[in-house]
Simulated scan of single mutants.
Amino acid sequence: MEPFKNLVNATTVANAGLHLQRAWSGFDRPRFEALANHGLDALELKARMLQLADAMRATLPDDFNNACNVLETSLAPPLPMDAKGEPEGLSGSAAESGLAGWVIWSMGEFVARHGQHDVARSLTCLHALTQRSTAEFAIRPFIQQQPEAVWPVLTRWANDPSAHVRRLVSEGSRPRLPWGLRLQALVADPTPTLPLLRALQDDPSSYVRRSVANHLNDIAKDHPDLVARWVKDHLIETIPERNALLRHASRSLIKQGHAPTLAAWGLASGLKGHAGLSLSAPSASVGESIGLRVTLRSTARQAQPLEIDYAVHHVRANGSSSPKVFKGWKLTLAAGEQRTLDKRHSLKPVTTRTLYPGLHRIELRVNGAALAEASFDLKP
């Protein structure tokens, strides 16, 4: 898979120069492109975005309102949404009609850096930018530095006709947005965002609802009981979209075996019966996979809802180990039923985790309780 950084390249710069010049005849396109392209290939993704933002600062009008006018005029039409409310062509760019896609991140960065003195104008510009990609990173400095000016706008945007804008309300205010500025005030107290999430959790767009789920999952990292109460208070089985949203929001807490969350989902009871775990081989090499076989036998007189996960205790560089929980199965075990479940676990290296040789323990968790384990030797 091609690295994301390569999607921000000389073609991206040329396209930006073309449409910024179209929007403002006084735009110094050669200077912009020279500044934006300088050493670009050696930079990582975020550094490329920041360099384009610096080039915009050097070549857009000094007056911030006029600069925003140029940015807005250079844009393509808003990205269309499919039948499920998902954006079409989110990562692309509309070279003929105007700017969209990755370059929007740089445009938002320009607004975030130079628009703190005029929050209203900045937010109007971000409202336009987010409909061509996302302004989730750009809005966060405004939330951090001037929340009293931003919250009323986000409250209004929760009812905006554009799903892109409604998603920004949730995604832009996530306490721990990946790649984004951490909003420490909301990490400590997420209360200001709760009315927004309540207004958006039944949004017709799956794009918006998924953001709400991820926002609640963020909150769960610091306030697990709050999210457990949210699930208990808002779960309505007859609304499948909300059910799915709350399930996704609960995923980390269910993996952790958080008792109030398990209770909210009717998973508080442990397995009535027996569970076993066996592996397909005593050893495996990095880059291969290993098979897991789970055996379940119910001794109950009624059906049992079960959430079955497994934790791999990965060996670390210093010889210690740390568990990583993986999703397994969600099922209902009938009274007296015996069932066998099989799964392959990949041992291919990933960017977020280095695999070290050594004895790895796998722990089977049923409704949050560790019921069985097995081990294998990971070889280089």
Rank of each mutant, 00 (worst) to 15 (best):
K5V: 00
S173R: 05
S283F: 08
S206H: 11
Q302I: 01
A268M: 03
L347S: 06
A23E: 09
I362Y: 05
W102E: 01
V13E: 04
D62Q: 13
R301Y: 05
G319K: 06
L181P: 00
L279E: 06
A188D: 15
D118L: 09
H234D: 11
L197Y: 12
N214I: 09
E241H: 10
N69Q: 15
N217Y: 02
H215Q: 10
I143Q: 00
R344T: 10
Q116I: 10
Y207W: 06
G92F: 02
N37Q: 12
C68F: 03
L347F: 10
D225W: 00
A228P: 05
K84T: 12
H314C: 00
A120D: 15
R353T: 08
A334K: 14
D218K: 04
A36D: 03
A303D: 13
G92P: 03
D225M: 05
D342H: 12
L267H: 08
S278L: 11
T354N: 12
D233G: 02
R297L: 13
N37K: 12
N159V: 06
D203F: 06
R113E: 07
V70C: 10
P78V: 02
L306S: 05
R140F: 03
V111L: 06
N69H: 11
N69G: 14
P192Y: 03
G101K: 03
T73Q: 15
L245K: 03
R344K: 14
R198V: 09
R29W: 09
R353N: 08
L253W: 06
R365P: 01
L216T: 02
S298W: 06
R182K: 14
L279G: 05
D222S: 15
T11S: 12
A311G: 11
G358F: 08
L168T: 10
L359M: 14
V8P: 00
D41H: 11
F32V: 03
N318A: 13
F142W: 07
I254R: 15
G98C: 07
C125R: 03
